[in-house]
């Protein structure tokens, strides 16, 4: 998907010239402008302290811009409460332990839709669907804090999912997860995306970005360093290094092979690269 085309579609979130300073004067965002369209899968990447979490907290109004404007589903975030914005944007914190407080998984997942007053029938349907999507139905009676990190994170995600937001912001949801757990989580995000949900993923995991995301917004020192479709994002390794990032080996390899004319397209996974090789060999024959 072309980033320019994307920007022309109806934006769910739009930031216009947003700057933000924490008390004490540290400027964490410097004149950031961007739009996220409905149905996009956007990765926000950058080194520690690059401003990506500060940016993310503007996406649901937890932080209000010091200057500039944030529009969330058409509402000005500076004039709307977080509780209202939460109906449009769901935000999953990096540490699930900051969120879980109920005595059972089901109660935990029910909490969000209940406090938004969505009505009993809708509520139950949403709770069931979220638990099913995250694969935690069998844990419904258990106490969230007794679960493994992977399961705790699933509960935290389900509990936000149950509020049925249009945009889903996840702050480093794969930290501490192993391969199997990350793959499950990313597959779930793909499902949500196919249902029309907009996904914003903040992450250090470049392999997941290459495989699952359409667009990459790279933050560096509070500014947007680049905002491109995913393949282009990994094309410039110097630029990535300046943003304290590292392209996944397969992406780098595919680009090198393309540069010497051995392949015609990029690849995000080993399997994709093999398919490329198969195709090129077929064409040459």
């Amino acid at each position: 998907m072309n980033a320019v085309v994307t920007a022309q579609r109806l934006p769910v979130i739009s930031l216009q010239d947003v700057s933000f300073s924490y008390e004490g004067g540290i400027e964490a965002l410097k004149r950031v402008s961007l739009r996220v369209a409905k149905g996009e899968k956007v990765a926000v990447v950058g080194g520690n302290g690059s401003g990506k979490t500060t940016l993310a907290k503007h996406l649901n109004g937890l932080l209000k811009p010091s200057s500039g404007k944030v529009l969330i589903g058409g509402q000005d975030s500076s004039r709307t409460s977080v509780a209202t914005l939460a109906r449009t944007v769901g935000y999953v914190f990096q540490n699930p332990d900051y969120q879980l407080f109920c005595t059972s998984v089901e109660e935990e997942v029910r909490f969000g839709p209940h406090s938004m007053g969505l009505g009993r029938d809708d509520e139950s349907a949403l709770v069931e669907r979220s638990m099913k999507l995250m694969g935690i139905g069998h844990l419904r009676e258990q106490s969230p804090i007794s679960l493994s990190l992977g399961d705790r994170r699933k509960v935290a995600i389900a509990s936000v999912l149950a509020t049925s937001p249009e945009v889903f912001v996840l702050d480093e949801p794969t930290t501490g997860l192993d391969t199997v757990e990350s793959a499950q989580l990313m597959a779930t995000l793909d499902v949500l995306r196919s249902e029309g949900m907009t996904v914003v993923l903040i992450t250090h995991e470049m392999r997941l970005v290459a495989q699952h995301m359409d667009r990459v917004i790279a933050m560096s020192e509070g500014s947007v360093a680049f905002d491109t479709e995913v393949e282009e994002a990994f094309s410039d390794s110097d630029r990535l290094r300046r943003c304290k990032l590292l392209a996944p080996p397969i992406t780098v390899l595919a680009q090198r092979l393309r540069a010497q004319g051995a392949l015609s397209k990029g690849a995000a996974t080993p399997l994709q690269l093999v398919e490329q090789v198969v195709r090129v060999r077929g064409e040459r024959r």
Binding site: K57, N60, L62, S81, V82, A83, A86, R87, G90, Y91, F93, D97, Y98, Q99, L100, F101, F111, G112, S115, M116, S159, V160, T163
Partner: peptide, 28 residues
């Protein structure tokens, strides 16, 4: 912040509702 993101409003409700909300903060 995490609880507000789930739609919890700390300013609203009677004293019992508020007390319960603080459990949601103190527990974690």
């Amino acid at each position: 912040d995490a609880q507000r993101s789930r739609g919890m409003e700390f300013e609203k409700g009677n004293i019992f509702a508020r007390a319960r909300k603080y459990v949601a903060v103190l527990g974690p």
